[in-house]
Nucleic acid binder design. Structure first.
Lengths: 163, 163
DNA sequence: CATGAGTCCGACTGAAATGATCGGAGATTA
DNA sequence: TAATCTCCGATCATTTCAGTCGGACTCATG
């Protein structure tokens, strides 16, 4: 219930990763390609590519073609909100159906006059939107360490972070 | 994106209607059946019946069989939160997949150590849950609910839901 | 007490959306 | 100039969801 789609998850992860590479360490700032992100998070390459294509079309990231190509953020991480990201990937986010149907009432909500839950739900929807719109990609970076690079000596087992 | 399912909508409408009949006017208090609600809101009878069955199984409403039968609220409208309703219909509500998978990490989230968006998303999820958990069926009846949400970024530990 | 109408209940079928995939076009480097 | 690497659009399976059907039970009535 109320779950994000896989595409949304992938998009968030990818953008966050790109931001970390682009702004995290200025000396290593570079363009990252789809394959790198996919391997980092163990997600299917082509699906992630599709998500990034959408984000590029929507102006969230910019694509750079050819060898040594890849993606980079179109604007600063602090200017990209979670709501913008989600809307770019999945279209307008709304809890109820009749929300974006207010212009043409003919579609489905035939119980327009009787509908008792519309008003309170719109309030909830508004609150959620504000919640997502007040959180930026930069906020996601600041909260948690992006890539937990442990020192090489401590733990050799398991998680190979970087290759 | 983030839309409620039809079942959730129908469940909310039905419970709200039952509550209004049961508590709205004490003189007319009675048991309402599925058909009445379905006709009132122009929704398929059998699907609504299925939703109400689920709600009955979960202890939100009580069913009364036979002629003159129907449904009534199992407890006071002020004791039923929207979160309870949604969870009863659609299972535990969570934004991320790895939320309810924390016990068995083997399932899908193989990028557990790398996952950078988990922590911030859990915060968002928490805020949404509190939002839905602080709103009762009685609030929906009263007209407009009094719910305000502060942004996450301002308060850090955030989730300020007050009424 | 027997009957019958009306209700809730569980399992089944069809459809839409999602997840995942493939081959092609364009651009850059050597 | 040629080869390689990248992004890009269209296509195909899978899962979830919306909707439907017949059966079991209960209570009012004759």
């Amino acid at each position: 219930m109320l779950k994000f789609s896989k595409k949304a998850d992938y998009g968030l992860m990818a953008v966050q990763y790109i931001a970390s590479v682009q702004f995290g360490d200025l000396h290593k700032a570079r363009v990252v390609n789809t394959k790198e992100i996919a391997e980092e998070y163990h997600i299917p390459v082509e699906l992630l590519a599709k998500v990034l294509q959408t984000l590029a079309r929507q102006g969230i990231v910019e694509s750079q073609n050819g060898p040594k190509g890849g993606y980079l953020l179109a604007r600063n991480a602090r200017e990209i909100t979670i709501a913008q990201l989600l809307e770019a990937i999945e279209g307008p986010l709304g809890i109820t159906d009749c929300y974006q149907e207010q212009e043409d009432k003919t579609t489905s909500c035939s119980c327009f006059n009787h509908c008792n839950i519309r008003t309170p739900l719109l309030k909830v929807q508004d609150s959620i939107y504000q919640l997502l719109n007040n959180m930026t990609v930069a906020d996601m970076m600041g909260g948690t360490p992006l890539i937990t690079v442990q020192s090489l000596s401590t733990a050799g087992a398991g998680q190979g972070v970087s290759q």
